[in-house]
Amino acid sequence: MENDLIPVIQTHDLRKIYKIGEVEVHALAGVSITINRGEVVAIMGPSGSGKSTLMNLLGCLDRPTSGRYILDGEEVSELDDDQLAGIRNRKVGFVFQSFNLLSRSTALANVELPMRYAGVSKERVQRAAAALKSVGLADRMNHKPTELSGGQQQRVAIARALVNHPAILMADEPTGNLDSKSGKEIMDLLLSLNKESGTTLIIVTHDPTIAAQTQRIIHLKDGLVEEDIK
């Protein structure tokens, strides 16, 4: 594929320093990575290695203390809160360990939510329905999260993450709250969606079997890239 050569994520000396009282904690101590379009990447590392911080920065949930970050051709390290919200809305899809669905709303309404913030109104329902169909939940659209199994809830979350056609899909321990069977199904779904649509997939995990299914593993330790295996 030609996509291989187009970088979707470029970071240069990305640093994040937290101040806890008098102590400065270097959660990220200078990370420079490039991820190309269509890649499937696992970010691994022990707790405290900075993988959550890296995910927050790559997902535009937070700003780096210093360094540059270019996402899909846009310099995002110095945008303000609302501009970052716009970037998250258009370019990033999130899948969380604990699903994070709105319990009061139906699956369909949950998937519609990112489009609401994007100001899409006309084709919203059709697009949400199509996204749910693509994750195999065409017959569960009007169920509330409490009426769905864990695997089904995570499918709704994936449909929600993809509905705005983001440049990258960030998955934070996507199988962490699931049994092994539905965990495998979710992984299969993520990988097949990557093949079909070419969406860049970044999985943060500490599970080696999950990481083994990806094309590239970035190991973090003490806020630095320890290993980058392709």
Binding site: G59, L61, D81, D82, A85, G86, R88, N89, R90, F94, F96, N100, L102, L113, P114, Y117, A118, R160, N164
Partner: peptide
């Protein structure tokens, strides 16, 4: 937090 992650601005 989730709404913000999905792109909700302060105003929203």
């Amino acid at each position: 937090g989730l709404r913000k992650a999905l792109g909700a601005r302060k105003k929203d």
